[in-house]
Structures are given as C-alpha cells and as structure tokens.
Simulated scan of single mutants.
Amino acid sequence: MSPSIEAVEAVELEYEEAPPFDPRTLLGEPGGDKRGINQTSPDIAFRVRTEKGTGLILTENKLVEHSFYSCSGRASGVENPDKTRCMDWENLLADLQERCWQLRWEEGTRRNRKYWDYIQLSEHGRRALTRCPAATAGYQLFRQQALAEGIAASGRYDLVVSCVAYDERNTDLIHCLRTSGVDNFATGWGALFDGRAQFSTFTHQQWVAWVRAHDSKGHWRGWLDYMESRYGYV
C-alpha cells in the first residue's frame, strides 16, 4: 500500500467526509437519506497514521461482482442524446465539456457531475484508453478516483489512496476493463492518472493470510476458520 503507513487508527463503513469534502459538494452528486444511496461512498475507509501525519484509504470491496459497472450518464431515462460519444475516446477527450453528458445533465433531468474536475490523466492514460474509462465497466473506480483526488487536493491528509479489495479468483472483475484499454485493473488503473491520490489494491486472500500470520495469540481463530470454510481463504 505505502511504506509511510505506521498504523491503522480507525475503520469506517460507507465512508463520507463532512462538508465541504462530501460527495455532494465535491462531486455534485444528489446524495440521499442514507450513505451509499446516489453518491460515491467507499465501502470501507481506513484512517491511518503516516510518517508525516495522517492518511485515508478509500476502499471498494468486491467479491463476485463482474465489473465496476457502467456510467449512469449512459443509463436509460437520463436523456443522453448520443451515447456513442463515450466510445469515441479521441474526440471525447478533445472536448469533454461538450461531449460528456455528466457535464451537461443540467440540460436534462439532473445536476452536472464534477468528476472530471479532479481527474488528471497521464500521458499513458491518454494513449492507452480506447473509450471513456467510466463508460462501460469502470464507473465506480472512476468516481472513487475523483473523490480521492478531491480530498487529496484539500491537503487534509498526507496520504490519500483509492483502493480495491477483491477476490483473486474473480477473473471477470480483473479483466473487466480490457475493452477500455486496461487488461488488468489491479495493475493498470493507477497508471492512467497523474493526480495526487494513489491507487492500490489487495486481495481478500492477502488480507486473510496476513491476519493468520500475525495472529500469534489466536484471537482471530474463529474468524479465520469461518473465512476458510465460507470462502476458501486459507
């Protein structure tokens, strides 16, 4: 993850920062009565202590899901006049403001989204991608990347990471962005960007193996037995 991390100080579920660093303010999302509804709320957030201060690890957790899903700007009912623009990467990139429906929703039924305000593509990303990275299978990753970049830009944390925890056997998920130009999301997603936030992953198998190796007093024996019997994590 990062050699600068010294300790995990807190773990929170369906994470949301307080305004003005919440997804409604940063990303232009509508929000809802509950966290995770109509907004980018990472499944898990690890608050960590680093060598220089504090850090935040925003984590999407995946078990059997096959992808990070398609962009809501391409969904039925949002009045997108031309969804083919999402697939025409060169022309889309040349005029995002005009061609990305996320930036023009106020002409239709919803508030404009601000994801692209925080996304900084690398030169590699510009060359490697064949369509918008959010279009067909990377929407959750794209939104979390934007959220991480927005929080990182605030300077509140020394370290901000957009992270995915996943099952190493889930090859559909691993290769879900292949048609977008990223053969393996775990090794290829982070290279698409040049922002302040980092991207990292860990597998469920790695997590369980770490706990097993460090549980010298057997405090987690029951949990480890359950993870082995339920999911086959040894």
Results as ranks from 00 to 15, higher is better:
residue 75 A to I: 02
residue 210 W to P: 00
residue 111 R to P: 14
residue 195 G to S: 08
residue 119 I to M: 10
residue 212 R to L: 02
residue 202 F to M: 09
residue 4 S to V: 15
residue 63 L to T: 02
residue 204 H to F: 14
residue 187 T to V: 04
residue 220 W to I: 11
residue 19 P to E: 01
residue 154 S to F: 07
residue 169 R to C: 03
residue 201 T to K: 06
residue 80 N to T: 10
residue 132 C to H: 05
residue 132 C to R: 05
residue 185 F to N: 02
residue 224 L to Y: 02
residue 49 R to K: 15
residue 148 A to F: 01
residue 84 T to E: 15
residue 56 L to C: 13
residue 26 L to D: 07
residue 12 E to K: 14
residue 216 S to P: 02
residue 189 W to N: 11
residue 153 A to I: 03
residue 10 A to V: 12
residue 17 E to H: 08
residue 104 R to N: 14
residue 126 R to M: 11
residue 71 C to M: 08
residue 31 G to I: 12
residue 10 A to N: 10
residue 10 A to M: 13
residue 39 Q to F: 03
residue 230 R to G: 00
residue 40 T to D: 13
residue 20 P to M: 02
residue 159 L to R: 09
residue 11 V to P: 11
residue 227 M to H: 10
residue 3 P to G: 12
residue 115 Y to A: 06
residue 123 E to W: 02
residue 194 D to A: 15
residue 231 Y to C: 03
residue 116 W to V: 07
residue 138 G to W: 01
residue 219 H to I: 12
residue 34 K to P: 00
residue 2 S to N: 15
residue 84 T to D: 15
residue 139 Y to L: 07
residue 184 N to D: 15
residue 215 D to T: 11
residue 143 R to P: 01
residue 110 R to I: 06
residue 81 P to Y: 10
residue 41 S to I: 04
residue 192 L to Y: 04
residue 41 S to W: 00
residue 89 W to F: 10
residue 204 H to A: 12
residue 48 V to W: 03
residue 187 T to A: 15
residue 149 E to C: 04
residue 200 S to M: 05
residue 186 A to P: 05
